[in-house]
Amino acid sequence: MPAPVTARPALAALSAVPWWLVAAVLLAVAFGLAIAADEGYAAIFNALSAGIGTTLFVTVVAFLMAALLGLAVAGAMLSGRRIVREAATFYVEIVRGIPVLVLLFYMAFVAAPALVAAWNVVTQPLQAAGLLAPAGVRDFDLLWRAVVALVISYSAFLAEIFRAGIQAVDRGQVEAAKALGLTRVQVFRLVVFPQAIRTVLPPLGNDFVAMIKDSSLVSVLGVQDVTQLGKIYSSGTFLFFETYTVVAYIYLLMTVSLSLAVRALEKRLRRHEALRGG
């Protein structure tokens, strides 16, 4: 007996679901149940869950700031002035050649003390008048040192993504918008950016997921994220296998969930574009 007509769309939707996604969901559910049923794993998960907020905070704040800086650098790379274009390209090429971990150490132990010393020099008159207390290196929180390092590192990669997306917009549309009397800001906001964002969304999503994983590097500075809490817990209990299994599980939950969210957003944008085209 054939399936009812109303059931066919549901069956088609189920058949379109990737097998890897089904396997990942089943694995996540199975491991989640195992954590809930086992007191040892549950204790580890409870201990590490306190760092999820820090991991997400570092990721979201650093990525948003890196995107804004990267967009500005991309605009500079497309500038008509050679000195601006060359300076932006120099920034991108140099930063992309430095490993994130090295940049974290440099920001934490070289740049931060230098910035604090420069701040004290600039504010010396206010300090002498008793209006401002001298700043110490410890006043520059390690969390924000890590965030700044991630912003600098990822802004160089995002700048290249934005540059490619902007250049992918048909030049004829830009010229037509200018002929209609739109200003450069209006052309970018109404014509260039809406089209460029659809082009750069997939690589932006990939970099956002990558930043979640790279945020674990902040643990080397003692920031209390998931990785750092796992390191502390395992060193105190010697449950290295169990602890780092839970650490991996937490990161997988975050990365896979965000990957699916980005894919859903891409599909929605494509449907919206198809409707507009139709």
Rank of each mutant, 00 (worst) to 15 (best):
F238L: 12
T227C: 08
R96F: 04
E86W: 12
F31D: 06
I232F: 06
L258R: 08
A179V: 15
L103H: 02
S234K: 10
P203Q: 11
I166N: 03
A168N: 03
P125N: 10
L115M: 13
V223R: 05
G32M: 09
L201T: 03
L21W: 14
T243F: 01
S257H: 04
A264R: 05
A114N: 14
T55C: 06
S155I: 11
R171M: 02
S215H: 00
V22Y: 05
V73D: 00
A168H: 05
A149W: 02
Y41H: 07
H272E: 15
A177K: 03
M107N: 11
A128G: 03
L71F: 14
A87K: 01
A159Q: 00
V22W: 00
T89G: 13
A87W: 03
R96G: 06
W119G: 05
T123C: 10
R263P: 00
G80H: 00
R268M: 08
S216N: 11
P125E: 13
M107A: 08
A12W: 14
K213N: 11
V61Y: 04
P194D: 10
L182I: 13
A128T: 14
A176C: 01
G70I: 12
Q186F: 01
K213Y: 10
P4K: 07
V185K: 07
L131V: 12
G32V: 11
F57W: 15
F63G: 02
